[in-house]
Simulated scan of single mutants.
Amino acid sequence: MSEDQSQQSAVALTPESAIASLRSPDLSQRYYAAWWLGKMRVREAVDALIVALEDNDDRTDLGGYPLRRIAARALGKLGNPSAIPALLKSLSCEDFYVREAAAQAIEAIAASSPESFNAAQVCTATLTRLLQSKVIDSVKLEQPYEAILEALGRLKAVSSQTAVEPYLQHRLPRIRFAAARAMYGLTGASEYAELLVKGLEDPDINLRQAVLTDLGEIGYLPAVEAIAQCQTENSFKLFALKSILDMHLPKAQFDLSLTEPLQQVMLYMDDLL
């Protein structure tokens, strides 16, 4: 789809027309509609997007399912727990990237509300089984391990700890960091969060930026100084610090005086602005 066509579609689409476009004979319109519905957080689109997870028309030459992938991502943004059964089924799709999008969507839904968290618990066993690989030192990934590990950490799936722990030794740093984040979510032990803090010194800037996001999302207050001093763009550091602040502020909202650690977070943010 050209830029002009995208702009025209963006102007023309409404929630109703976008939902209808998911059944369009034009596969590019279906894909764009699914993306738009997720971006615009159109809650009425959940059922139509669930149907799109079964699409067999939009196929790549290698057998992938682009519409299923974007539909799963959109459902994650909508955060509706009614999508959990369909996303759980998508974890068995032959398309690696559909499985990845489904795991990420499950994590996003679990994070959206206590009700959604409880609904997503049903995915724990399937996600854990996807980790049952004898090859954890290969650069060729059989499963979207990063997304699976982070979903299990979000779900507090303590029963998966034995399956998660070996990935702390994975050959790929980003898988090791995902395992550390998961283990912190499962155990609350600072030793795993400190593995992420150490990752802020990685020579790969992309990995440093990914670790910043991880530390922000787990709300690890002791990492604040290391985050502020990380060698990367200020925008990434600000995003991580804001995530930490947002996670801890609800606990302090009835206290007129912020705790010293939260004051320090705000001072670092001021320095970076």
Rank of each mutant, 00 (worst) to 15 (best):
T162Q: 14
K89Q: 13
D58E: 08
D270T: 11
I205E: 15
P25M: 06
P81T: 05
W36G: 13
R43V: 07
P85A: 02
N80T: 01
P173S: 08
P222M: 08
V98C: 03
L22T: 03
L212M: 04
K242L: 06
S82E: 15
V46N: 04
A163M: 03
P85G: 08
S160M: 11
K39L: 09
A151R: 04
A105T: 09
V98G: 13
E194P: 01
L75I: 00
M40G: 06
V122I: 14
A179R: 02
F239L: 14
L53I: 07
L91M: 09
A72M: 09
L221T: 11
P222F: 06
R129V: 07
T124N: 02
P81E: 11
C93H: 12
Q8P: 02
Y192Q: 03
A83V: 07
L195V: 13
A48C: 10
L238I: 15
Y31S: 07
L67C: 00
V164D: 00
A180N: 13
R43Y: 12
S138F: 00
F239A: 12
I218L: 11
N118F: 15
E107Y: 08
D95S: 12
D255G: 02
S112Y: 13
L196W: 09
S112R: 06
A108C: 01
L53D: 05
P114S: 07
S138L: 09
S24W: 05
C230L: 11
R181G: 06
D57I: 00
I19A: 15
Q132C: 09
Y167V: 00
N118E: 13
A12R: 15
V158F: 05
L78N: 13
S113N: 14
I136Q: 13
S82Q: 07
D58I: 01
T213H: 06
Q7I: 09
A20Y: 02
L22N: 03
I175F: 12
R30A: 10
M269Q: 10
L130Q: 10
A157Y: 06
Y97V: 07
G64F: 03
I136C: 05
I70H: 12
L172N: 04
P25T: 04
L258M: 12
G63I: 04
E142H: 15
E100L: 01
A108I: 00
I19F: 13
L172T: 03
A72P: 03
S28R: 07
A120T: 10
D57F: 10
S82C: 10
A226E: 09
A74P: 02
L155H: 02
A178M: 07
H170N: 14
A34R: 04
Y32S: 10
A228P: 06
K156M: 08
E3N: 09
L152F: 12
I148V: 15
D95F: 05
S90N: 11
L87K: 00
H170A: 15
K198R: 11
T213G: 12
M269C: 05
L131G: 05
D214G: 01
R154F: 10
Q132M: 14
P250Y: 14
A157V: 12
L53G: 09
A228H: 11
T187H: 08
I218Y: 13
F117Q: 11
F177G: 08
P261G: 09
L88H: 15
L130P: 04
V51W: 11
L196T: 06
M183K: 06
L168R: 13
L78R: 02
S113F: 10
V98R: 01
P173A: 14
G185C: 11
N206V: 01
L130Y: 01
D58C: 12
A179N: 01
G153F: 01
S138P: 05
